[in-house]
Write a protein that binds this DNA or RNA. Structure first.
Ligand SMILES: [Mg+2]
Length: 923
DNA sequence: TTTAGCATAAACATCG
DNA sequence: TCGATGTTTATGCTAA
């Protein structure tokens, strides 16, 4: 089948591959930015010869492989994310022109790669026949304890290796310790192992290179999301309107249906597999190593395809590097992209492979990192950088076979997806180690209407790209915004905005920058309908968590938006509730594994706070990571110390502060201090930007000892949404200090008017039903104010500042137009005038006729309902315009209406909606 | 069924 | 005048 497809490869690809150096990855910046950078262990092996020389020169001391004593252990590489993020274009790295030494940056101490620490030479013993075995210290069995049969993970060894092994040292390449072990101590690492494609199944030639023991193992890679998310360049490029990385015919990587072996850097030949030509025949004309390589490659290719093989071989020295990358998409195109890098310098070589798949609506990326150590005698010039790319499209696939191939049926065949109906719900395949990757395609299946079936281009077609999936990314699978560009991010706009602002150095961004950030980090929006910008603005305006601050008039139009520090914890919490918040990916996997093993595969969205592991990737979110570090610590403290009733505990802490209760737990105080410090960080910015809003003028201090602290709730209902204002429930009567004008009285009441009504439904923060601001009186009796107290007081001050801000009615409240003279009085007057004009002109309110898309007959859908709701709107508007909050409160029905409306300003007239439904039902 | 949360669309105003 | 920005309202969907 695959051979057939290879025969169908477009000539253009062939031409390109022949006319341009294939190994020159891509001159196109967008594409290059997507490539993975060299791992540090790849860097400059040529210069860090210390260790290698030891090894190479002391070849005779090597132990015999027969002794099966682990000699080398290839230590796992650092988190891939650190390798990927700020990478220079790979093209610059892989370009054949520069010598390898120039490509390799200085010294990644190989010693750091090789563990345990004792020098290699000390652990090597001479042998007459230098057969080297590179194996990890722990037995494979211990490393792979709960994992599927090892045989499924072993890399095949081509017979060519056996031959070479006869004359040259054969190195046994030990498996890399699971990356996950470095990420999380989850015991269930096996579930993270990547499946091995059938073509990777143990080949007979694998058997017994030396001891009939498995030689290769594909080390599991960390979650893709953690590995691949960082690549902002691509997203940035997209956000700037630059064309998306084109894997089309101009890119040498796109060699559909053919395999290309590149031997570069050392001036090796470039050998290509001609389309439709027997690859083996061609390569038999090559020299030995190429022939071997080709044979191996051909073998793998002939085993069903879907695999990429990277082989690096050097004469008389054997290195096998093997990597599989699998990309699948249902019924459409499959792009398989593999980059394998192998460098040799007398000794070890690193193999590095990136597999990338970009596919419309279905994107599966498999990423595998392989490390191969290689020993070679003498020849220091034997550096070989070999890149093998096998890219393959199955656009022509049709019929059931396509489905089979694209629906991970081979996984089922291999019992990796036991009994999972991929067609129905691959997402159910939680038991599969590949479910994380499978689900994407599965999730896309539902709305996949793009079965063009003929799209060789890995990029989505125009029609495809115009209709990105509006379905949110499924929660049970890792999400990478840069990979799942067709899945709606599982973050709310609030979270997106929050992340954007937090990721900015100044913690304040204009809306345009927020757009840019979102575009850069979530390319989904590049092709999403433009309404999302409206949503962003809408969210900024309506969400109390975000505050508009004036910026210098010469900075252009618009304002800066920043996170209200008061609500920031809510946003943080909301972000953490997101299925794949930036700092959840790592632990998420372990949690997921845990759940899988415990038989609760569908609870993978449950996040477990695990301290610093929640921190965002600093490469991804440089500022956000720093910024959230403190809050993470706070949260960790909270989560670890506080019970589920965080709000209650927080409130208790507040009470303790209020009463000077020294009984407050040390950790609570510590947390509070941290909050204070954290807020102190932000307050100056906010206050500075909000100079016109002097808290002192609005919030009576009530004496030097009195402080008011906002109660920060963690109630889910008050996270960060429009109703976040409920967090600060305060009524004029009960919070007179916070009210200096009738307008403000209404504002406070309008936000939580039911709070003043006895018997109202309890609210989460109703531990202090009327206290959004808790007076904290610095205990005069505590004459021996400790430093801690002072800090607490400062924190209280800071929070008081925030309270001063928070107690002010925000601009989105119409009442503010009357009362807020601090922000641009002229502006306020304009607003007032505008509102009056609006009302008089009748453009709004009752006479506004929303344009509905869905109409029934000649009437917009919900016509009657709208008429009814408009009455409510009228009521509401009247109320607002007259600022007669009390009037509404006096009206029971209206109070109820406002109760709903005030708690969810966006969900306006829900009460009427329900009433209307009832009415219609009656009718 | 109700409610809250969220998204989306749209109208409209303001401003550079 | 136009586009970006900001506000507000309306409505639908979904999950709890
Ligand atoms: Mg706001």
């Amino acid at each position: 089948m695959y051979r057939q497809r290879r025969a169908q490869v477009k000539p253009a690809h062939n031409d390109i591959s022949q006319s341009t150096p294939v190994y020159k990855i891509s001159p196109s910046p967008p594409l290059s930015t997507r490539y993975l950078p060299f791992h540090h262990c790849l860097q400059d092996i040529s210069q860090s010869t210390t260790v290698y020389n030891d090894i190479s020169h002391s070849a005779p001391v090597y132990k015999d492989i027969s002794q099966s004593t682990p000699v080398y252990k290839i230590s796992p590489s650092p988190p891939l994310s650190t390798m990927i993020s700020p990478s220079p274009p790979l093209s610059t790295m892989i370009s054949p022109s520069p010598p390898l030494s120039t490509m390799i940056s200085p010294s990644p101490p190989l010693s750091t790669m090789i563990s345990p620490s004792p020098p290699l030479s000390t652990r090597l013993s001479p042998q007459s026949t230098p057969v080297y075995k590179i194996s990890p210290s722990p037995p494979l069995s211990t490393m792979l304890s709960p994992s599927p049969p090892l045989s499924t993970r072993y890399l095949p060894v081509h017979p060519c290796l056996q031959d070479i092994s006869h004359s040259t040292p054969v190195y046994k390449i030990s498996p890399i310790p699971p990356l996950s072990t470095r990420i999380s101590p989850s015991p269930l690492l096996s579930t993270r192992y990547l499946p091995v494609h059938p073509c990777l199944q143990v080949h007979p030639c694998l058997q017994d290179i030396s001891q009939s023991t498995p030689v290769y193992k594909i080390s599991p890679s960390p979650p893709l999301s953690t590995m691949l998310s960082p690549s902002p360049p691509l997203a940035i490029a997209r956000s700037r309107g630059e064309p998306s990385p084109n894997f089309g015919s101009k890119t040498p990587f796109v060699c559909f249906g053919q395999a290309t072996i590149l031997n570069s850097v050392s001036g090796g030949r470039t050998v290509k597999l001609g389309i439709g030509q027997p690859t083996t025949d061609r390569y038999r004309e090559e020299d030995q190593q190429h022939s071997v390589a080709v044979q191996a490659l051909d073998l793998f290719l002939s085993l069903q395809g879907y695999c990429g093989v990277a082989l690096v071989m050097q004469l008389k020295v054997t290195v096998l590097l093997y990597i599989l990358v699998l990309v699948m998409q249902l019924k459409v195109t499959i792009l398989l992209y593999i980059l394998a890098l192998v460098m040799q310098l007398k000794v070890t070589v690193l193999l590095y492979i990136l597999a990338l798949d970009v596919q419309f609506k279905v994107t599966i990326l498999l990423y595998i990192l392989a490390l191969v150590m290689q020993l070679k005698e003498g020849d220091a010039a034997g550096n070989i950088l070999t890149t093998v790319k096998v890219e393959k499209a199955v656009a022509e696939r049709s019929g059931s076979e396509d489905d089979d191939l694209t629906s991970l049926s081979w996984l089922q065949d291999k019992n990796l997806l036991k009994g999972i109906n991929l067609q129905v719900a691959v997402g159910e395949a939680q038991e599969s180690p590949t479910s994380d990757f499978v689900d994407d395609s599965a999730s896309e299946v539902a709305d996949s209407t793009c079965s063009s079936g003929n799209s060789l281009s890995p990029l989505p077609s125009s029609s495809q790209s115009s209709s990105p999936s509006k379905l949110k990314h499924p929660q049970h699978m890792p999400y990478d915004p840069l990979i799942h560009v067709h899945s709606k991010p599982p973050y709310s706009f609030s979270c997106l905005i929050f992340m954007a602002i937090e990721d900015s150095p100044s913690k304040a961004l204009p809306v345009k920058e927020i757009y840019s950030w979102i575009l850069a980090h979530f390319p989904y929006f590049c092709k999403a309908p433009t309404g999302w910008k409206n949503s962003v603005r809408h969210n900024l305006s309506l969400n109390k968590c975000f505050r508009k601050v004036e910026k210098a008039p010469n900075l252009g139009k618009g304002s800066l938006w920043m996170v209200d520090p008061v609500y920031r914890p809510n946003l943080v919490q909301a972000l953490k509730k997101a299925p794949f918040h930036p700092y959840s990916s790592l632990e998420r996997v372990s949690v997921s594994n845990r759940n899988r093993s415990s038989g609760s595969p569908h609870q993978t969205d449950v996040l477990v706070a695990k301290g610093n592991s929640r921190l965002p990737n600093p490469d991804l979110f440089p500022f956000l990571s720093r910024r959230l570090a403190a809050s993470t610590a706070d949260t960790t403290c909270l989560l670890s110390d506080m019970t589920a009733d965080d709000d209650v505990n927080a409130a208790a802490a507040m009470l303790a502060l209020k009463h000077g209760n020294r009984m407050i737990a040390q950790k609570r105080a510590e947390w509070f201090r941290r909050i204070q410090v954290q807020n102190d960080d932000s307050i100056p910015v906010l206050l500075d930007l909000r100079k016109k809003k002097t808290r002192a003028s609005k919030i009576p201090q009530g004496g030097s000892n009195e402080r008011m602290i906002p109660v920060i709730t963690t109630s889910p209902s008050e996270d960060h949404t429009y109703s976040a204002g409920r967090t600060f429930t305060s009524t004029p009567a009960q919070q007179p200090l916070a009210t200096t004008s009738p307008d403000e009285a209404f504002e406070e009441g309008s936000e939580s008017n039911e709070g003043s009504s006895p018997g109202d439904e309890p609210r989460p923060v109703c531990l202090f039903p009327n206290l959004s601001l808790v007076k904290v009186v610095k205990s005069s009796s505590s004459s021996s104010d400790t430093e801690e107290q002072r800090k607490i007081a400062e924190g209280a001050d800071a929070l008081l500042n925030l309270a001063g801000i928070s107690t002010r009615k925000r601009s989105h409240s119409q009442g503010e137009y009357h009362s807020d003279n601090n922000i641009s009085p002229s502006h306020s007057m304009k607003r007032v005038a505008t509102r009056g004009r609006r009302k008089n002109s009748g453009k709004r309110g009752l006479q506004r006729v929303p344009v509905k898309k869905n109409v029934v007959g000649n009437h917009p859908r919900g016509f009657q309902r709208r008429k009814q709701s408009q009455v409510a709107i009228n009521i509401n508007n009247n109320n607002v315009v007259s600022s007669s909050g009390n009037h509404l409160k006096s009206h029971k029905g209206a109070t109820k209406l406002l109760s709903n409306h005030s708690t969810n300003e966006n969900g306006s007239i829900r009460q009427l909606k329900s009433e209307d439904k009832v009415g219609r039902t009656k009718r």
